[in-house]
Amino acid sequence: MLIHPWDAARTDTEWQEWLATHDFGQLAVNGLPGEPPHVQPVHFVYEAERASPHAPGTHGTPGAYGRVLTHLARPNPLWHALEADPVVLLSVVDDYVYVPGPWQAAPDTPAEHGVPTSFYAAVQLRCTARVVDDPEEKADILNRQVGHFQPEGGSARAAVGEAPYGRMLSGIRALCLEVTDVRAKFKYASHKPAEVQDRIAAGLAERRGPGDAAARAHQARRRET
C-alpha cells in the first residue's frame, strides 16, 4: 500500500481509535508453494494494550503493537498454510467514497480538468499468528470477542464442558495474532488547497451517499490537526 506523507496516520492513537470501531477485515495468509494466498473475511478484536506475555514489547517484535483475537472453523482450508508460515496480514478498509473530478479541480482551472479519486481509511496489521487449540484459552478468546461485539450482554459465556457452548469448542480453532508492524492511511485530500478541500466537503455534504458523512468527518478532523 502506497502511503504519501500527507495521507499517513499522524499518531498511533489515530489508527488505534479508528480500528476500535472497525472490527471486520480480511486476513491474508501466504499459500503453500504453488498455491495462491488465502484471504479470509473475519470479525476480530484488537487489543492495543494487551500484548502476549511471550512478547518483548518493542517495535518490530511480536506484541509491539498489541494483538488481534479471532477464531475460525476447524475445517477452514487455511490452517496448513498458516502453520507453514505464521506471518500474516490483516487488512481493514472502510469510510471509502468516490470523489468526482470536478470537485478536485485546482483553483483557476476548468472544473472538467479535475482528476477523480477515491477517499478511504485503511489499516494493515502485519502479525505473527499463534494457533490456539487449548480449550480454556479458546473459551477466553470467544468471551473476549462476544464481550466486544455484545457489551450489553445477552449471551451465555463459553466455558469448557458447560452448556451451551462447551461442546462446540472442538469445532473451532482460535488465533492470537501478535502485531509486529502497522501501516495506516487516511486518504482525504489533506495536501489539497483549502479552496479545493472546501469544495470537496460541500460536495460530500450535498451528495449524502453511503460513506460521505464519514469521509467528510475524516477530512475535517485531519484539517484541524
Results as ranks from 00 to 15, higher is better:
N143Q: 08
R10F: 06
W6V: 08
L2F: 15
P5W: 00
G211P: 15
L72I: 09
D133L: 03
D85G: 07
Q145K: 05
C176Y: 05
V68L: 03
E137I: 03
W15Y: 12
Q150M: 09
V146L: 10
Q145H: 10
A106C: 06
A202W: 01
G34N: 06
T109G: 15
S170C: 11
A129D: 08
V115N: 14
W6T: 11
G60H: 04
K187S: 07
V45G: 12
H38R: 02
G211F: 04
P75K: 01
P100H: 12
V196S: 10
Y165V: 06
A174W: 00
G60Y: 02
Y46Q: 10
R221S: 13
R216Q: 15
N30D: 14
R173D: 15
D212K: 00
A73D: 13
L204F: 04
Y120S: 14
L177A: 09
Q40R: 08
P107N: 05
P116D: 12
E162K: 13
R130H: 05
V179Q: 10
T61V: 05
V179C: 10
A215Y: 03
A81F: 00
V97R: 03
P107E: 08
S155E: 13
W15A: 15
T21S: 14
D140V: 03
W79S: 11
A205P: 13
L125M: 03
A105K: 01
L177G: 11
R144C: 12
A111M: 05
R208N: 15
A220N: 13
A213L: 06
A213W: 00
A122W: 01
A174M: 03
L69D: 10
N76C: 07
A55K: 02
V160K: 09
A129F: 01
P135S: 04
A194E: 14
Y96C: 12
L78V: 04
A111T: 07
A220S: 11
G171N: 12
P210E: 15
F119G: 09
A64W: 00
V93W: 01
A220F: 02
Q26Y: 08
P36R: 04
Q197S: 13
P100D: 15
F44K: 04
V39R: 03
W15H: 14
G171I: 01
R223I: 02
V39T: 08
P62L: 04
R50C: 07
H54G: 11
G101R: 04
G211C: 13
P33R: 04
Y65S: 08
P110W: 02
G25H: 03
P193F: 00
Q26M: 11
E83D: 13
S155G: 08
